[in-house]
Amino acid sequence: MSRQNMVVTGAAGVGGAPSAHPDEVVRVSGVSRTFGRGEHAVYAVRDVSFTANRGELVAIRGRSGAGKTTLLNLIGGLDRPDSGQVVVAGHEVTSAGEAELLRLRRGTVGFVFQTFGLVPILSAAENVGVPLRLAQVPAAEREERVAVLLELVGLGGHAAQRPYELSGGQQQRVAVARALANEPDLLIADEPTGQLDSETGRSIMDLLRAVVHARGMTALVATHDPALIDLADRVLVLRDGRLVDG
């Protein structure tokens, strides 16, 4: 599939229907994902549909095993649904080829994971710069952008430190800066506060909210922490793979 075919053009949305909102970034339509077959089948996501707009932080809430991670993986192109359709920033994700998905993950979608995922031997600045190197951003521009991002997340004075020299909250801030490096339209955060204490976790959620609103991005944040839910603009509730609220 060519990049032109991957992009939903004009005013049409999924299936040719008009987009419900001019700032719509995410459209999930009737998405389902099952693992296994027959009596051993696990229905991770069942017929989920929703949209998310630019400048909106959407929390996806549910118990462990509710389907949050699977849903985020489907939206971010890390997995494929059995049925339904996902469109992100005009890109039809569901049937995209591997090359198109790679471009999507490098430029359109940024990821923040619970486990930080930093490269231990690289400094904070070098970790943030990894996506820019992959995108072949010139060195001078890369260094300038990395410095701005580290300042944005409150770590301007920690550029030379390696992950083991940083606290958990600082490591997650580096991960957030790295996810923002290529200025994505969508930020996907899967339990980003799961390994942090409540106060640090709230500071990370505050940071995500501030970045989303300041930069006009969209963020989908999976969490089961009720203390963080009130920081979201909207809350989607998953139960046994189904969207039951939102």
Rank of each mutant, 00 (worst) to 15 (best):
N53I: 13
P192E: 09
E191G: 05
R142N: 07
F116A: 05
E56M: 08
A17F: 07
A179V: 02
A59R: 05
A99Q: 08
T69F: 14
R202M: 14
A147M: 08
P22N: 06
T69E: 05
L228P: 03
V146H: 00
A219P: 01
Q195F: 06
G76M: 02
G154A: 12
V42R: 11
E144H: 10
G67W: 09
L236N: 10
A177Y: 05
S29A: 12
A181S: 04
A96C: 03
D79F: 15
Q161T: 07
D230Y: 08
L57E: 11
D230C: 14
P138L: 11
G107I: 06
M217P: 03
V88L: 01
L220E: 01
E98C: 03
R145M: 05
V7R: 05
N127Q: 11
T200E: 09
H158G: 03
T115L: 14
R209V: 04
G13T: 07
S123W: 11
V58I: 06
E144T: 10
V119D: 07
D190H: 07
D47E: 06
L186H: 02
Q170C: 02
G194C: 10
H224T: 05
L152C: 07
G157F: 15
V235L: 08
V128W: 00
T9I: 03
V109L: 06
G241T: 05
T34W: 09
T34G: 05
G154S: 08
G246L: 01
T115F: 14
I60G: 03
T218H: 10
A99G: 10
Q114N: 06
P22F: 04
M217A: 12
L186Y: 04
M217E: 04
S83M: 10
Q170T: 02
E199V: 15
A210T: 11
F111P: 00
S203R: 13
D240G: 06
G241I: 11
A135V: 01
Y164S: 13
I60C: 00
P192C: 03
G129V: 14
Q170Y: 03
N53A: 14
T108S: 07
E141Q: 14
P226H: 09
R173Y: 02
G168L: 12
Q171C: 08
R3T: 08
Q161P: 04
V8Y: 09
V148G: 05
A11P: 12
E39V: 14
G201Q: 08
